[in-house]
């Protein structure tokens, strides 16, 4: 461990580690409530009859919806605790998110989400010494295809 580094040996060992795998059912009502909460009236997300006649064949989920509770692109409390246990600083900010959308997600889909710590870096910021953890979640659908991937950045200082 470098002099004054926030990244303890214990944290360094977490890079590349798979944290958990969870299965999500994408439900029609949950899609509709999510679209309503965004204020998005797109009939692809709101009207099952309309959506079933499109190439999607079912109610489509807005980008980033992966079943309830939405896990994509969001650092979980569990992860945070895991990092703090490893010696990470206790103050936390959600830095941002990146999504790659590969296959459409819609009502009736079953997504298997695998979360891993993709990287941990540190640098000096206006918050002082700051640690950045990139969490990668891969969502595989019931056909075995990767539907989407998300990377979120957890900022700790």
């Amino acid at each position: 461990m470098a002099e004054g580094s926030l990244i303890t040996d214990e944290l360094r060992k977490l890079i590349g580690v798979t944290l958990e795998t969870i299965v999500f059912k994408v439900e029609e009502g949950a899609i509709q409530r999510y679209a309503q909460a965004i204020g998005d009236s797109n009939p692809l997300y709101n009207d099952p009859d309309f959506a079933s006649k499109t190439k999607y064949g079912r109610l489509l989920a807005p980008p980033g919806f992966t079943g309830w509770p939405v896990k994509a692109g969001r650092p979980t409390d569990k992860l945070f605790e895991f990092l703090v246990k490893g010696g990470a600083p206790p103050r936390l900010l959600d830095g941002g998110v990146e999504f790659e959308f590969i296959e459409p997600v819609g009502a009736g889909d079953v997504l298997t989400a695998t979360t891993k710590i993709a990287n941990i870096t540190e640098r000096e910021t206006r918050l002082g010494k700051t640690m950045f953890t990139t969490v990668e979640i891969t969502f595989v659908n019931q056909k075995g295809d990767v539907a989407l991937k998300s990377w979120s950045t957890l900022i700790q200082f």
Binding site: V97, F99, E100, F101
Partner: peptide, 29 residues
Amino acid sequence: GALKRAWLGQLMTDWIGEQGKLKKLSCQY
């Protein structure tokens, strides 16, 4: 932050319509 991210998703899907495909989206809070 995730709500603002979802707004940005709507910005893009409203614009590209049903024939377009959103492939990547990222934002910083």
